[in-house]
Every structure is written in structure tokens, then in C-alpha cells.
Computed example of a mutant assay.
Amino acid sequence: MSTDTTAALVIEAVDQAHTHKAQNCTDPSCARHAGTTDCPPITVSRSPGSVLGEAVADAWYAAGGSRLDIPAGVVAALALWPQKSPGAEAADTIAAYIAAQPPRVLVRGLAESANYYWRLRPDLWTTARPLFDWTREDLHDTHLAGVQAVTRAALRHGVLQHTGDTDPAGRSRIDLLSWVITSLRHHHSRRSLGEYHTPPDVSALITAMLANDGSSEKRPHQRGEWALEPTAGTGGLFRSAAQELRRDGEDPADRGWVMLELDPLAAAGAAVNALVWELGPRAVVGCGDVLAQPDLAEDTLAQARDVARHRDDVMKMVRFAIATRTTKQLLDALTASR
């Protein structure tokens, strides 16, 4: 992150801290307060991933869209939506609120959903940026209409039901981003790219075989182990492995997960999934060619540490800026009262 970007982030964070402290925000572009209090309900069903992916692709291309990052990013931001509830019981209410937003307010809300995770996992957020950079653009009407159409299609087919559970096991039953990216690329001539993500059933079978080392007896897991996937895609194999650990009463966060992927969009999806599936603080995602970069795994781990240190430095700047501005306001108030 450049110095200018860091400075802008500090200023924005300070401004938001003061602007949004009150609950009566009147900024029409504020995604927190621009929604109506009586949002019309939408019909929601918990569709299979294949159905949701096709619905998203159909909505996007019907609206005249051609890029892949925007519709995939919409689903990723919805999957990351910070408001979770037990069993995703609040998903319908949240879906109605999101679906009611005007297009530009919707884009702002999706951006804030993704940016929420910068403080938590700046390394994964950085890898996921190809899915969210479009939120910083001045989108034209075709793209705005596409964003709204994709959002409503994903909500109707249950994106929040799949990813809105407070229990990470509930959020890990499916790899939505794999289905979405595959469907989008199928419409966009997937054959020319030669990309086929591993089907969930195959991932589960491979995981079970690896866990047992091909024997009939389950191999005991070792706390603190690391797992490496050099062709991770959006992380489907690790999703299955994490669910296997949970069924055995273990926490995937006790392990280290290193996912490497050549395609930036798929790597971004893996980074989002690592957050959605709650793989833990040692889950990292690197983007690059493992054949041309034999040290990619080590470089990815080092970069994660560097980005975390940079995040800590930026947060110190934010806290200092907020303290400075608050002190100035107090001094101005004291001066004015004399």
C-alpha cells in the first residue's frame, strides 16, 4: 500500500469515526442509513451452488455486463456481510434491506462489507482485492444495473442463507465462489481458459483418502500441522478438510493452511473463502506460478507478516489522528466558551 493510499485511509477512517458516531446520518451515499425502515420482502430459497451460480451469470449477462470481477465480487461481498445470526435466521431480513438499496448506495455497502475485514486480516484482504477494486470506480449505468441484478439474484437464491450463519461449519457447507466463477466463465467461454474447479463430492473423497493415508483407520490429526495446496482454485479441498476436522471435534484454526493459485480471481476467491469458512489466523493465500516461483509459499507467509505490521502502523496513525482531532475540538470549545 502506497503512502498516499495510507494517508487517504487514515483521513477516511477519522472522518467516518466522526460522521457515523450519530445514528441520524443524513448522507444519501451512506450504506448504513440510506435504506428504508420498511424494506419490501423478497422471495428467498436456499438454492444449490450450481443454481445460484447460473442465476448470477444469467443476471449479469442479461444486464449487458462482460467483466467477471464485478459479479463475482458482488457475491463475495455478500458472503462476507458481517451481520451473522445463529442458523442464518436473520438472513431474510438482511436480504430485504440490501435488495432495497439504490444502485450506488448498494455499491458503497458492498465495498464496506469487504473493507470491514481489512483490520482483521489485511493479507487476505489484499489478495481478495481483484474482487473489490471495481467498487472504487465510477461505474456507468450498465454496470450499476448489473450489480443490482446480480445482488438480487444472489439474495433470492440464498447467498446469505449459505454464508450468514454464526457457526463457521454452517458457512462451510458449500464453495459458492467456485460455482459463481465457474458459471461466469462458462458463459464467457470457459473452455478457452481451461479452468475446471474440483467438484465438492470429489474434494470430500480426496480429503477422506488423504486423512486416512489410504487405510481403513483414520490417521490422528496433529495440532499445529500445516497443509499446502499448490493449485488451490477457490480452496475447495481445504473446505472439505476443515469440515472433516470439525466432525472430529477439532478446530481448523489450530492448523496452518497455505493456498497457492495462479489465477488472480480464483486466488481472491480463496482469500474470501478463508474468511467465510473461518480457517483461522494461519490461513494464507498466495497468487503466482508455483513452477516459476518455487519459494511462493514462503514468500506468501512473509508477505502476510509484512502486511499485518503495516496494518498495525496504519491503525496507530488512525488512533493518533482521532485523538488529535478530538483534542483540537475540545480546545476550540474551551476557547469559544471564554
Rank of each mutant, 00 (worst) to 15 (best):
W257T: 02
T135N: 05
A76G: 09
A266G: 00
A91T: 05
W118G: 03
K84I: 02
V314W: 00
A242P: 10
V307D: 01
V150W: 08
S85G: 09
A323N: 14
R305M: 04
C30A: 07
E89G: 07
Y196F: 14
R255G: 06
A304N: 00
G109F: 04
V307P: 00
T327N: 13
Q23I: 08
R325I: 07
L80R: 02
L110I: 06
H221Y: 10
W179K: 04
K316N: 14
A274N: 01
L210P: 03
S66G: 10
C39F: 05
W277E: 08
A302Q: 13
A283E: 00
W134A: 04
L260N: 03
G214W: 13
L144D: 11
G236V: 00
R32K: 13
R104S: 03
A304G: 02
D138Y: 04
H186M: 06
V10M: 06
F238T: 09
R190C: 05
M259G: 05
L9C: 07
G146M: 12
D38V: 09
T3E: 14
K21T: 11
A227P: 05
H197V: 07
A100H: 08
G53K: 01
D295S: 14
V10F: 04
Q83F: 10
A111R: 15
R247F: 13
A323H: 15
P103N: 06
N212F: 07
T327S: 15
D295M: 11
L184W: 00
D332S: 04
E195T: 02
Y97F: 13
E217S: 12
A34D: 07
